[in-house]
Design a binder for these strands. Structure first.
Lengths: 230, 230
DNA sequence: GAGTGGTCTAGACCACTGT
DNA sequence: CAGTGGTCTAGACCACTCC
């Protein structure tokens, strides 16, 4: 007895994608509206709405009130990038995670950070993250003391700034940027890479309710891969 | 007259985030269930559900049936990465886009692609994308002929494989990988970069309904930046 | 002005899973 | 087995925007 069950939003989603693949609906062309499609597929309008809304968020459909829903003509697909703690990232590979604080100072905000904060002091940190005792990531970090006063009395000798900040100032607004750069001699040395080796650099700026919190520059050796699906 | 309106899912979302920031709810601790929170905030359970569900998708909350909802203890935040066509990416910077096909052959699938396809022929392409007549991206691409038979008769002399494929085989499943690599002499030359310069490499493998479609390796000069917010 | 998506509600049943 | 989230429904009102 094939239990056909009810038409769920996943079914609607798959049916929509199928019709696009089979070219029943082609890019730029208006599809049926929610009410009609719901009637055709035998489900509530809300079910169709959820399916279409999520496909629109992923960049597959374009929706406009009154104008209706179309298959995206110039698709801008959206991939979800998972951003874990370094520790979790390392431990996910079954490697042993270790952390070393290399440098720790308090100083006036340097010119580099002018984009993020005009004045005030910062905690300046340099750290090394290891996987199975091999260098995994070099972290250069600046924490705004106006933004996070509690950072002044923290030494970061045992807890990485990443983990400390997540507990202290959770769920901030973040901007990440990825690029390929030439390692400085210092970074190359720390990562056990040849001089002028390419490094994968993640730069992360963080705000909480509009107030600047921290900026981090993370350097990975050439072997590093960042992956996403969509 | 302050129009207080109804409590929408965005309001619920903000209220939840506020309570986390103010540490009313802290990482690892169970929050009220949907029914109770809906009653407290004066809205329907479905409204709370949508807010909590979306926050869970972003990695802010962890939800389990029966166990309830908690603030994520080891937050794995999720950033949305927008992946446009190269043309759109270039034109978004108000630069003039141009495309050159450098090489075009049909050959047996090389060993590199064993991970994706065992046998059969492929279209092998090498292309250059330009922004204001300056090299922007070098594209190495392999298109599976078993997967996309129509590719055999296409020359790709005017239309980039990216754009052609999007129209021919829309909305596929994709895996993207980003890394920093050392440019080969050929790539460095095409990108007008010094020898052994670091390049930002995007590798993209594509399937449609389980069938392998194409693999592309995209090389960007060191100046390239990829950005996301969350 | 009219049609479309955007959202909310109240209620229901179900699926999963901790205890 | 009982509590929680997951989803569906039918109906409603609203906001936007094309015509």
């Amino acid at each position: 007895m094939t239990a056909v069950d009810r038409t769920g939003y996943r079914d609607v989603r798959e049916e929509i994608l199928r019709r696009i693949r089979v070219k029943i609906w082609t890019p730029g062309v208006v599809m049926p509206n929610e009410t009609d499609l719901a009637a055709e597929l035998g489900c509530a309008r809300a079910t169709v709405n959820r399916a279409m809304r999520e496909l629109a968020e992923e960049g597959v459909l374009e929706r406009k009130r009154k104008a209706g829903t179309r298959v995206a003509a110039a698709p801008v697909r959206r991939a979800q990038l998972k951003i874990p703690l370094v520790r979790a990232e390392v431990e996910a590979t079954r490697a042993k995670y270790a952390y070393q604080r290399l440098d720790h100072q308090i100083l006036a905000a340097p010119a580099d950070l002018k984009r993020y904060m005009n004045a005030g002091e910062v905690v300046r940190l340099s750290c090394l993250h290891l996987a199975d005792d091999r260098p995994y990531q070099v972290e250069d970090r600046w924490i705004s003391l106006p933004g996070v006063p509690a950072a002044r009395s923290e030494t970061f000798s045992d807890v990485s700034p990443n983990e400390w900040l997540v507990k202290e100032v959770p769920f901030t607004d973040v901007e990440v940027t990825f690029s390929a750069q030439t390692a400085t001699d210092e970074i190359a040395g720390l990562l056990a890479q040849p001089k002028a080796a390419p490094v994968f650099v993640t730069e992360r700026a963080t705000w909480a309710e509009g107030a600047f919190i921290t900026f981090a520059r993370l350097h990975h050796p050439q072997t590093y891969r960042m992956t996403a699906r969509y």
